[in-house]
């Protein structure tokens, strides 16, 4: 396990040395929270939907975990490009462990950033409905971090350049985020958005998180947990499968 630890340790070192990354990664969700939360808050209230800021917190936490998870998973791509991946890939340990160490590193970082956004939300006045459900929220964030980092690692194993990374962000990650229930409730959404939101696994992640924070759910917690559990399994399988084929 020492090998898995050292792979994880390297990500921590990298992360803590570049504070700008911490600020950058939390900045975008914070902007969403403030601009949308306050900007659309009154419209949302007039529509009889309650407090939008409260609704949005789960969405921006998911946003943080999604983007940093995929980004840190994609670190493999950067390592490939700058040569460091070779150093890991010819080490006398199994690829599974290499992947595990890297994925755990990325997941720790995205979990930490998700937690940071949660704390910021608390600072601007957000309060969870029921603190007793907080451990559930933490568990959901952990599962999502692992799943999305694995997803990023799998994708990184398939593409060869930064343009590929950009393309994935623009054509996969952004749509996944905007077409989930992160920013708007699916209940009254137009038919098309509701259908897309229902087949998007991220909707279930954000729904579960929202339930644990403010007690609102669209699909029901049992279904949510089932789908995010399945998503984790599929993402890990995808990462292992792609990473095993990777040539450096």
């Amino acid at each position: 396990m020492a090998e898995v630890y050292i792979l994880w340790w390297r990500h921590m070192k990298r992360y803590l040395r570049t504070r700008s990354r911490i600020i950058g990664a939390v900045g975008q969700p914070l902007l969403f929270l403030l601009a949308l939360g306050y900007g659309l808050g009154s419209v949302y209230k007039q529509a009889g939907q309650g407090n939008y800021l409260h609704f949005l917190v789960a969405g921006v936490i998911l946003q943080t975990i999604l983007f940093s998870g995929v980004f840190w998973g994609m670190q493999i791509l950067f390592d490939k490009r700058f040569g460091f991946l070779k150093e890991m890939m010819v080490a006398p340990i199994s690829r599974l462990r290499i992947l595990l160490g890297n994925a755990l590193g990325g997941a720790t970082i995205s979990l930490f950033q998700g937690a940071l956004v949660f704390i910021i939300a608390l600072a601007i006045g957000f309060r969870p409905d029921n603190w007793a459900l907080f451990p559930l929220a933490a568990l959901i964030m952990l599962i999502l971090s692992l799943a999305l980092t694995s997803f990023g690692a799998g994708l990184a194993s398939m593409v060869d350049d930064f343009q590929g990374f950009q393309a994935i962000n623009n054509f996969l990650v952004f749509p996944l985020f905007f077409l989930s229930s992160a920013l708007y409730p699916l209940t009254n959404a137009p038919e098309l958005l509701r259908i897309l939101g229902t087949i998007n696994p991220l909707s279930y992640g954000v729904d579960a998180l929202r339930y644990s924070l403010i007690g609102e759910t669209h699909f029901g917690l049992a279904k949510d947990m089932l789908i995010i559990g399945l998503t984790l399994v599929v993402c890990v399988w995808f990462a292992v499968n792609r990473f095993n084929r990777l040539q450096v």
């Binding site: 990298r14 040395r17 010819v90 006398p92």
Partner: peptide, 16 residues
């Protein structure tokens, strides 16, 4: 992989 070590032709260090 357990039997060898290697110095690569291209750089393979972690700059950070």
């Amino acid at each position: 992989r357990k039997s060898f070590g290697i110095v690569f032709q291209d750089p393979a260090v972690e700059e950070e």
